[in-house]
Simulated assay, not measured.
Amino acid sequence: MNIRPARVMDVKEIHKLVEYHANNKEMLHRSLSAIYENIQEFVVLESEDNIVGCGALHVSWENLAEIKALAVSDKYKGQGFGRKIVKILQDNAKNLGVSRVFALSFKPKFFIKLGYEIIPKETLPHKIWSECINCHLFSECGEVPLLITLK
Rank of each mutant, 00 (worst) to 15 (best):
Y76L: 00
K77S: 06
K77I: 13
K77T: 15
K77N: 06
G78P: 07
G78S: 11
G78M: 10
Q79P: 06
Q79D: 04
G80H: 10
G80E: 04
G80V: 11
G80M: 09
G80S: 10
G80I: 12
G80C: 10
F81N: 04
F81D: 08
F81Q: 11
F81R: 12
G82Q: 13
G82C: 13
R83N: 08
R83L: 13
R83A: 12
R83M: 12
R83T: 15
I85S: 06
I85H: 06
V86Q: 09
V86A: 14
K87Y: 11
K87R: 15
K87H: 14
K87C: 12
I88A: 08
I88M: 10
I88T: 15
I88F: 08
L89I: 14
L89N: 10
Q90W: 00
D91S: 12
D91G: 10
D91T: 13
D91Q: 14
N92W: 02
N92M: 13
A93H: 08
K94Y: 03
N95C: 04
N95L: 09
N95F: 01
N95R: 10
L96I: 08
L96P: 04
L96S: 14
G97T: 06
G97N: 06
G97D: 03
G97M: 03
G97P: 05
G97Y: 04
V98A: 05
V98E: 01
V98Y: 00
V98K: 03
V98G: 02
S99W: 01
S99T: 15
S99K: 09
R100T: 07
R100L: 01
R100K: 12
R100A: 00
V101A: 02
F102I: 01
F102T: 03
F102Y: 03
F102W: 00
A103R: 09
A103D: 03
A103S: 13
A103P: 00
L104Y: 01
L104S: 07
S105E: 07
S105I: 11
F106H: 04
F106M: 08
F106D: 05
K107S: 14
K107E: 13
K107C: 03
P108D: 05
P108T: 09
